[in-house]
Simulated assay, not measured.
Amino acid sequence: HVYNTVKENFDVAAWVTVSESYRIEDLLKKIVAQFGITVNVANNEMRGLSKYIHNYLQGKKYIMVLDDVWAERSWPEIRNVFSTSNCTSRVVMTSRKQTVLATREFAYRIHLEPLQAHHSWVLFCKGAFWTTDEKKCPLDLQELAWKFIAKCQGLPIATACIGRLLSCKPQNSVEWEDVYRCLDSQFAKDVIPDAHMILKVS
């Protein structure tokens, strides 16, 4: 995991998943917990939590990862929490929406392309057939396997999660079709699949 390696170069580090629906107070409490700040979060409102975080980060070299950010308002809401006293500190945001990262405040933007079909297939098979030596998909399941891969839209985490989910199921078309129907009911046509949705059918 890149984060676990990189964070060793910083005084303190935190990784918080923001997700589509969140409350700013809950997000600040997560940040407090991840940084290991000693404070009674139950007795502090948003302003108090923001002050604790800001003061804690003063003079420290920190890395803060805000993962899976959906709302454009997220960064403006918490921007002032982070101390700018150390120019070697870093705030990293990940998002599925380009508009979230459109602000000029971010010096670098990296757009990750979806996995190509071949790479998706390899990743899927590694997860679905990890207990076998060859990690190959039987011929009678290949059509269904490609349907699962298509659902993942080239997203590595979705592909890996579905593969691992199927590894716990009997390897026959009846069982796999049942899983596919469950997944199909979870995914709206315009929704990108994520691990939380996949885990609901496990």
Rank of each mutant, 00 (worst) to 15 (best):
L183V: 06
S95V: 08
G163S: 07
L155N: 06
N55F: 07
R181G: 08
L57R: 05
V100H: 00
T94G: 01
D68R: 07
N86R: 01
D11E: 07
T103L: 09
A160N: 13
K169P: 04
K151Y: 14
G36E: 10
T17D: 05
E175C: 10
R181S: 15
D190F: 09
P138K: 01
I78E: 04
K169S: 11
Y22M: 05
K60N: 07
E177C: 05
R47C: 12
N40E: 10
Q98D: 09
A13R: 05
S185M: 13
I149G: 02
N86D: 09
L165V: 13
Y56G: 00
N172I: 03
A102Y: 05
E72I: 11
K51V: 08
L57C: 07
F35I: 04
S74Y: 02
M197E: 07
P138Y: 10
W146E: 12
A102V: 04
G127R: 01
L49T: 04
I31C: 04
T131S: 11
S120R: 03
N4Q: 11
I24C: 12
D184L: 10
K169V: 15
W146Q: 12
Q98C: 06
K136C: 14
I198D: 03
N86M: 03
C152I: 02
S85N: 10
N40S: 12
S74L: 14
S74A: 15
L141T: 02
R47F: 13
M46L: 14
I157M: 15
I110P: 00
A33F: 08
L112H: 03
R96F: 08
I162C: 01
E175A: 15
V100F: 03
M197F: 07
D11Y: 02
V122Q: 05
R164Q: 14
T103W: 02
Y180I: 13
L155D: 01
A160V: 14
A150V: 13
S89K: 04
S85Q: 12
W176K: 01
V122W: 03
A145M: 07
K147L: 11
I78A: 04
V41M: 12
Q153D: 14
S21G: 08
T84P: 00
I37K: 03
P114D: 12
V92D: 01
R23K: 14
E177P: 00
S83I: 02
L166T: 06
L28Q: 09
L112P: 01
N4I: 01
V6T: 06
I63K: 05
E177Y: 00
K97Y: 13
P76W: 08
I110G: 00
F82Y: 05
S74D: 05
F106A: 15
R181M: 12
L183M: 10
A13H: 05
I192G: 02
W70I: 07
R96A: 06
W146R: 15
I192F: 13
P156L: 06
I37P: 04
I192C: 04
L141F: 08
E8S: 06
M93C: 09
C182D: 14
S74M: 15
S185E: 15
S202A: 14
